[in-house]
Design a protein around this nucleic acid. Structure first.
Length: 644
RNA sequence: GCCCAUGUAGCUCAGUCGGUAGAGCACUUCCUUGGUAAGGAAGAGGUCAACGGUUCAAUUCCGUUCAUGGGCUCCA
C-alpha cells in the first residue's frame, strides 16, 4: 500500500507497522527520537499496524509538545511498576501527564517518605535500563475487570465500571499491566530524563469525601539536557519567590500572632503599593470613574438580602455588638449599590462608575494560604459600573481595554476565560444567558480569544477572568469582569428612563489588578525584586567613598528629593565595595557614587542596577536620567505618570 | 478543611540519643578614611512557636493548638 510518511510517498507491505514506515522515511537519528505516530487527529503506538484508512502519517518526536505528553505518561507507568515492585500492597489508581511532568496516585497504608522516592527512582532507572517493550492489549471490559479484580486493584475495577464501554485497552511493560488508552513510547529505554520531585496527598477523583491517596509527582523530558534546564528554571523560580524577596528586601512580613493570611507591610513595601494605588487612582479618573468609600462592616441583614449570607457565609467573618450582628465585607458591592440608591437616578446619569480600593476579608481555608498570593485580608481595586442594558457592551469593552493598557505598562501578556453559571447561583436563566452573551460579544469585538470555563461563574453572574503571564510564563488570575443582573434586582435599583418609567440598571463588578496584595506578589516574582524605576521604593542611593563627602551627599540628596525622586544616602563608615554590594542586593536602580572627584566637579558617578558604569554626571543630568527612566514604560501608550 | 513535612537569635541554619544552646550575616561600640559585590576587633542579642502531659529534670519524648511549606479541594 501507498501512504504519505512525513511528507514522502512510500509504499509498505500490508500489515506493516508505523515503525516500519518511519524506518524507511526518516534518518536514523530522527528515527531514534521518534515517540509515536500521528494519523489525522489520533496518536498511535509505533508498534500498531497501519490501518487501511490512514493515508498520511506524521512522526511525533520526543521533544515536541505531544511527544512530551507521551513520554511523561509512559514514565508514570514505569513509576507505577517500580512502586508495585517495592510496595506490592499499594493499589494503583491513575497516573496522567501534567505540565512539565506526571504524577501517579497510589492507595498505600502509610505515606511515602523521601527515602521511598529515592528507592522508587532507583528502581525506575533499572526498569528503563532493561529497555522493556510497552505492549498494548485490546480486551473486553469484562476480561479487564476480571484481571484487575483478581489483583485486588479495586480502583481500576471502579474505573472500568464507570467507563461503561465494551472494549478497553491495557498496556504491559515488564510484569506490570495498567488500564490505559495510550499511546506509549515503544520501549522503556526511551525514557532518558526524569526525576521524582515530591509526594503529596490527593483525593480519589478529586473529591474530598473520597479516600486520600498518596500522589507522587515527577518531571520528565526528552533529554537529560532538557531536564537540567527545567531544574535550573525551578531554582530560578525559587530565587524569585516573593516570600523570600519580601524578607530580603524588607517589603512585608507575616506574624504568627496576627493570624494566617494577614500581611504587615513594611515601609518599602507600603510605599510600592502606595505608588501602584496612586497610579490606579489617576487612571480611573481619566476613564470617568468616581471615587467612593464604604465601611468595613455592614449589618448582617444586608448580607442576607444580597444572598451572600446564604451563598458565601462560610467565607465571611462576623461580629456582634449591642445585640446587632454585622458581617465584615468580603466584597465592596453593597456599599456601592446603596450609594447608587441614595437618590433618584436619571438615564442621563448612567453609567455610574464607582471605584474604591476596598479592603475585604475572606476566611479562606487554612490550607490554601500562600504568601501574598492567597491571603485573608486584602485590598481590591474594585469598581462597580451601573449602566443601562444598552450600555453594557461598551462598558465591558472599556474595562477590557483598561486591563490591556495597565498590563502593557508592566509587560504582562494575558489571556481571557469566560466562566458560566455554577450550580449554586441566583437569578433567571434568561438573565444569565443575556449576561454571558454580552461578555462574549465584548471579547469578540476586541478580537480577544477566550476559553469557556463552564460552571465556574460567581453565584450572582457570569464573568471574564483575565490571567496574566509573568516573566517565567506562569499565569496568574488578576483582573475579572463580572456581569450581574441579580443584585440590582434584589436591591431594587432603578433609574428613570426617557419614557419617565423606572428601569432596572445592570451592574458590572470589575477589578484590574485584582488584589493589591496578590498583584504585588506577582510583580515581585515577575521583576525578581528589581522593580522598574517608576515603582521602585528607592530609585537612587547615594554612596559616599569616605565621610569627607557627607556634606556633598546631603546636597545631592536634597536636590533629588526636590525633583520628586525617591533617594537616600548611605554615609555609613564602610568601604565603597560594601555599599555597592548592599545597594545591588537591595535592587536599587541607581547607585550614585560620590568621592572627592565628584565633590570637586559637583556631580555624581552613576552605576546602574545591571552593573553598567555610566560615569560622571552632573546633578541635573542624573535627575533627568532617573525621571526619563521612570517615564519609559508609559511612552508606548502615550501615557504619563509620576508619583509625588 | 484534608494529607504530609517544618517551627532554635532580626535573617540563613547547626545542635542537644532528656541535664535550659551555637555559627555566619545583620545590630551596637571601637579601630580603620578605604573608588564600584563583604576591612578588622570587641559586645549585645534566645521562655528553643504556644499550651498541656510523661519525668527528679522537657527546647529535646507524647498530645493539642497556632503558624509556615508542598499538595488536594477552593479562590482576587
Amino acid at each position: 500500500m501507498q501512504l504519505s510518511v512525513a511528507g514522502q510517498q512510500i509504499s509498505v507491505e500490508a500489515g506493516a507497522t508505523f515503525a516500519d514506515a518511519f524506518k524507511q522515511a526518516l534518518s536514523n537519528k530522527q528515527y531514534k527520537n521518534l515517540v509515536v505516530a500521528r494519523c489525522g487527529e489520533s496518536l498511535l503506538d509505533l508498534t500498531t499496524a497501519i490501518p487501511a484508512d490512514c493515508a498520511a502519517v506524521e512522526p511525533v518526536f520526543a521533544d515536541s509538545p505531544e511527544g512530551l505528553v507521551v513520554i511523561r505518561h509512559s514514565t508514570a507507568h514505569v513509576m507505577a511498576e517500580a512502586v508495585k515492585k517495592l510496595f506490592p500492597t499499594a493499589k494503583v489508581t491513575i497516573g496522567p501527564s501534567v505540565d512539565n511532568g506526571f504524577y501517579y496516585d497510589f492507595d498505600y497504608e502509610r505515606p511515602f517518605t523521601p527515602e521511598d522516592l529515592e528507592a522508587i527512582e532507583a528502581e525506575m532507572l533499572r526498569i528503563v535500563g532493561a529497555d522493556k517493550a510497552f505492549a498494548r492489549q485490546e480486551l473486553t471490559s469484562a476480561e479487564a475487570r476480571a484481571h484487575f479484580d483478581a489483583d485486588g486493584e479495586k480502583y481500576k475495577v471502579e474505573l472500568i465500571d464507570d467507563l461503561g464501554v465494551e472494549q478497553v485497552s491495557t498496556y504491559t511493560q515488564g510484569g506490570f499491566t495498567d488500564l490505559c488508552r495510550g499511546p506509549h513510547v515503544p520501549r522503556t529505554g526511551l525514557l532518558k530524563a526524569f526525576k521524582l520531585t515530591t509526594v503529596a496527598g490527593a483525593y480519589w477523583r478529586g473529591d474530598e469525601k473520597n479516600p486520600q491517596l498518596q500522589r507522587i509527582y515527577g518531571t520528565a523530558w526528552a533529554t537529560p539536557k532538557d531536564l537540567k534546564v527545567y531544574l535550573e528554571r525551578l531554582e530560578e523560580a525559587k530565587k524569585r519567590d516573593h516570600r523570600k524577596l519580601g524578607t530580603q528586601l524588607d517589603l512585608f512580613s507575616f506574624h504568627e500572632d496576627v493570624g494566617g493570611g494577614m500581611v504587615l507591610w513594611h515601609p518599602k513595601g507600603a510605599l510600592t503599593r502606595a505608588i501602584l494605588e496612586d497610579f490606579e487612582r489617576k487612571e480611573h479618573l481619566k476613564r470617568g470613574y468616581q471615587f467612593v468609600q464604604g465601611p468595613l462592616i455592614l449589618r448582617r441583614e444586608l448580607w442576607e438580602k444580597s444572598g451572600h449570607y446564604d451563598n458565601y457565609r462560610e467565607n465571611m467573618y462576623f461580629t456582634e455588638i449591642d445585640e446587632q450582628a454585622y458581617g465584615i465585607k468580603p466584597m465592596n458591592c453593597l456599599s456601592h449599590m446603596l450609594i447608587f440608591k441614595s437618590r433618584l437616578r436619571s438615564y442621563r446619569d448612567l453609567p455610574q462608575r464607582y471605584f474604591e480600593h476596598g479592603v475585604v476579608h475572606r476566611h479562606e481555608k487554612s490550607g490554601v494560604l500562600h504568601g501574598l498570593l492567597r491571603v485573608r485580608s486584602f485590598t481590591q481595586d474594585d469598581a462597580h459600573i451601573l449602566c443601562r442594558p444598552d450600555q453594557l457592551r461598551e462598558e465591558i469593552i472599556g474595562v477590557v481595554k483598561f486591563v490591556r493598557d495597565v498590563m502593557d505598562i508592566f509587560g504582562f501578556n494575558f489571556e481571557a476565560e469566560i466562566s458560566t453559571r455554577p450550580e449554586k447561583s441566583i437569578g433567571s436563566d434568561e438573565d444569565w444567558d443575556r449576561a454571558t452573551d454580552a461578555l462574549k460579544d465584548a471579547l469578540e469585538h476586541m478580537d480577544m480569544p477566550y476559553a469557556i470555563n463552564a460552571g465556574d461563574g460567581a453565584f450572582y453572574g457570569p464573568k471574564i477572568d483575565i490571567k496574566i503571564k509573568d516573566a517565567l510564563d506562569r499565569s496568574w488570575q488578576c483582573a475579572t469582569v463580572q456581569c450581574d443582573f441579580t443584585l440590582p434586582e434584589r436591591f431594587e435599583l432603578s433609574y428613570i428612563g426617557e419614557d419617565g418609567n423606572k428601569h432596572r440598571p445592570v451592574m458590572l463588578h470589575r477589578v484590574i489588578l485584582g488584589s493589591i496584595e496578590r498583584f504585588m506578589g506577582v510583580l515581585i516574582e515577575h521583576f525578581a525584586g528589581a522593580f522598574p524605576v517608576w515603582l521602585a521604593p528607592t530609585q537612587a542611593r547615594i554612596l559616599t567613598v569616605t565621610d569627607a563627602q557627607n556634606g556633598h551627599a546631603e546636597k545631592v540628596l536634597r536636590f533629588l528629593q526636590e525633583k520628586g525622586i525617591r533617594a537616600e544616602a548611605d554615609v555609613r563608615n564602610e568601604k565603597l565595595g560594601y555599599k555597592v554590594r548592599e545597594a545591588q542586593l537591595d535592587r536599587i536602580p541607581y547607585m550614585l557614587i560620590v568621592g572627592d572627584k565628584e565633590v570637586e566637579a559637583d556631580g555624581v558617578n552613576v552605576r546602574v542596577r545591571g552593573g553598567a558604569d555610566v560615569g560622571f554626571v552632573s546633578l541635573s543630568g542624573v535627575a533627568q536620567i532617573i525621571l526619563d527612566a521612570a517615564h519609559e514604560p508609559f511612552k508606548r501608550g502615550g501615557m504619563s505618570y509620576s508619583f509625588s
